[in-house]
Design a protein around this nucleic acid. Structure first.
Length: 625
DNA sequence: ATAGGGTTAG
């Protein structure tokens, strides 16, 4: 007998993915000769390894199985591997070909397969449907039906699987219906339902269910916190996290990832830093997911240096990590660094995807790197095989338009192989505003309103274009249009974090407990600015209908309130970080630049699209935004 | 002897 290839085939099996068929045959022979294939558990491992790798190996597994005594153990191993593999649809064929009646394990794997398909179909926006593949919904329904037909619908594993299967499909009602059928759902089933409701956007229903749980384990907490983050209710997410710690539930990686996402949404740097400290103090491993969430948090809090520090310290990075870092540099107007990092990503062999290209293109556009952006766009398809989305076309129009190449922008739109969407026209409209081109602005708005007639930001942009060219008639006409159509502007707010507490300010609002002091500080600010020769442009103020409702003087835009508050409470030398929900208006931008000089303060402002780093009377956006 | 719910980039 030849010497054995390996002592224990089980140790070799996981590395089979890339093995040539010949080697598989040799291993198969070895297993046969050594008698190991007679053991169902070894056969199961062999089959699972084969099936979870390439399709030719799956075929091989299918050849091996029928020659062996049929056991559910080995066939379930095939099902499991197929469900977890790159083509979960194959599990359905294998299920139909089972030589024995399926048990609750078989059903569970079938349900997992359908879940995987439904989830990837939801993630893919365009689902490629080869002839032999059925629609995700059909597969979900038939997997559910199979569970019922074979009498395994009462198994808790299957039950929770069915709930998350409908959730993966995006069918919350379906999940609810399946959940309602369960006589006594266990923690896992309820948690799955909480997750389904939260992911479907109905966090309040999820919360009701969560509150009613007699027993909540850490996963239930995580599901609920993630639900709040998902719909952007980050404050509630953080409040729940505090509560979770109070009751002593196990805080884990998934918890912190959600918490970091909440911090990123709010721009709560202190809180985010605390999470980072917490991780270190507990000796938690910096996993890809956790590291990526940290990079994202620091970027979205305007602390790019810290973001890059974390990025460089990570020992494993995936496309999410790279994209997050590239996007962080882009929104902090570090266009050159952003391009450089993207090139590093390419040479590291990480395949960029559509999201990555949105980030790079935005980086180029913010830094005015037109040629580089153009080259990226071309390489997207030619070099990386990524088909452009509408967003990418929008980025290109923004790239040309922002740089003042309006003709190129229009030519680009005319040359688009698909119908332009609102983002494309919005980019052209914004470019018209920056470059005061009324005619083009009107044209872009017409196109935009034909698609989305109640877009408030678009109306505001057009009004700004009129205001920019002193056309007050135009301004009031836009106002009239908005009134007639009942277009409501989103009210503006700004927030400042002080000692880990986030203070919110609303436009014209006087509700802050320290409003008296704020008012005095605003007066002091005006006084010192006047001394420096700054006078508010009252003519523009009069007609300014920025993205915020003008209730009183323009000095009451929410960022000015936040700025005044920051100057009061933050010690000298500490930068003021402001987060805004809308785009900053021209006057506030000029004002903040001057304050940064006169008060010798660094001011970091995140608006709805990007960061403005103010220092010494200048802004990192170079007045283009 | 095989299985469950929660987490990252626009």
């Amino acid at each position: 007998m030849p010497p054995p290839l390996v002592r224990d085939p089980a140790t070799l099996l996981p590395s089979l993915a890339a093995a040539p068929l010949l080697l598989l045959r040799a291993l198969h022979a070895h297993l046969l000769v050594s008698g190991r294939l007679a053991s169902p558990s070894h056969l199961a491992t062999f089959v699972a390894s084969l099936a979870s790798s390439s399709s030719s190996h799956v075929a091989y597994a299918r050849l091996v199985l029928p020659r062996r005594p049929a056991t559910l153990l080995t066939h379930n191993a095939l099902l499991r591997a197929l469900a977890r593999g790159p083509r979960p649809g194959l599990a359905f064929a294998a299920f139909r070909g089972l030589p024995l009646p399926p048990d609750h394990y078989s059903l569970n794997f079938l349900v997992r397969a359908a879940t995987a398909l439904a989830a990837s179909a939801a993630a893919e926006r365009r689902v490629p449907v080869p002839a032999e593949v059925y629609s995700p919904r059909l597969l979900v329904v038939s997997a559910h039906g199979a569970a019922v037909r074979w009498g395994h619908a009462a198994d808790p594993h299957v039950q929770s699987g069915v709930v998350s299967m409908y959730a993966a499909l995006g069918d919350v009602a379906g999940a609810q219906a399946a959940f309602a059928e369960i006589a006594c759902p266990d923690v896992v089933c309820v948690t799955a339902m909480v997750g389904a409701l939260a992911a479907g956007g109905d966090v309040d229903a999820a919360r009701d269910l969560f509150d009613g749980m007699p027993l909540r384990d850490h996963v239930a907490w995580n599901a609920m916190i993630a639900g709040y983050v998902h719909v952007g209710r980050s404050r509630e997410a953080l409040r729940l996290f505090d509560e979770m710690q109070r009751v002593g539930a196990a805080v884990g990686e998934a918890t912190l990832v959600s918490v970091l996402t909440a911090c990123a949404q709010m721009g709560a740097l202190d809180h985010g830093k605390w999470v980072h400290w917490y991780m270190r103090s507990r000796g938690m491993r910096m996993s890809v997911t956790l590291g990526t969430a940290l990079v994202d948090m620091y970027s979205k809090c305007g602390a790019v240096a810290s973001a890059m520090e974390v990025f460089e310290s990570m020992d494993e990075r995936n496309v999410y990590t790279w994209t997050s870092a590239v996007s962080g540099l882009a929104m902090n107007s570090m266009g050159l660094e952003c391009l450089e990092l993207f090139k590093r990503m390419e040479s590291a062999g990480i395949q960029p995807n559509g999201v990555t290209f949105v980030a790079v293109l935005r980086g180029c556009s913010m830094a005015g790197l037109v040629d580089e952006g153009q080259a990226c766009f071309d390489s997207m398809k030619n070099k990386h095989g990524v088909d452009p989305w509408l967003e990418h076309y929008g980025c290109m129009v923004d790239l040309y338009g922002r740089a003042g190449r309006l003709d190129d922008a229009i030519n680009f739109i005319n040359g688009m192989p698909v119908e332009p969407h609102e983002g494309v026209w919005g980019a052209l409209l914004n470019a018209s505003r920056i470059h005061n081109n009324v005619e083009l602005g009107k044209y872009a708005l017409d196109k935009l309103l034909a698609i989305e007639s109640e877009n408030d930001a678009a109306h505001v942009l057009l009004s700004n274009i009129y205001a920019g060219s002193q056309n007050w008639k135009g301004v009031s006409m836009v106002r009239g249009m908005m009134k007639a159509k009942g277009v409501k502007k989103v009210p503006g707010w700004s927030a400042v974090e002080v000692d880990g507490k986030v203070h919110e300010f609303f436009v014209g609002g006087k509700s802050h407990p320290r409003y008296k002091e704020i008012e005095m500080m605003l007066a002091e600010m005006s006084r010192r600015l006047r001394l420096q020769g700054y006078a508010a442009n009252t003519k523009e103020v009069l007609f300014d209908i920025e993205e915020e409702e003008k209730e009183g003087a323009i000095s009451l835009h929410s960022e000015k309130l936040a700025l005044a508050f920051g100057l009061i409470v933050l010690p000298e030398g500490v930068e003021i970080r402001i987060v805004k929900n809308l785009r900053v208006c021209r006057d506030c931008h000029d004002y903040t630049k001057l304050i940064s000089k006169v008060f010798d303060r660094e001011i970091i402002m995140r608006d709805r699209n990007r960061f403005h780093h103010f220092k010494d009377g200048m802004c990192s956006c170079k007045d283009y935004w």
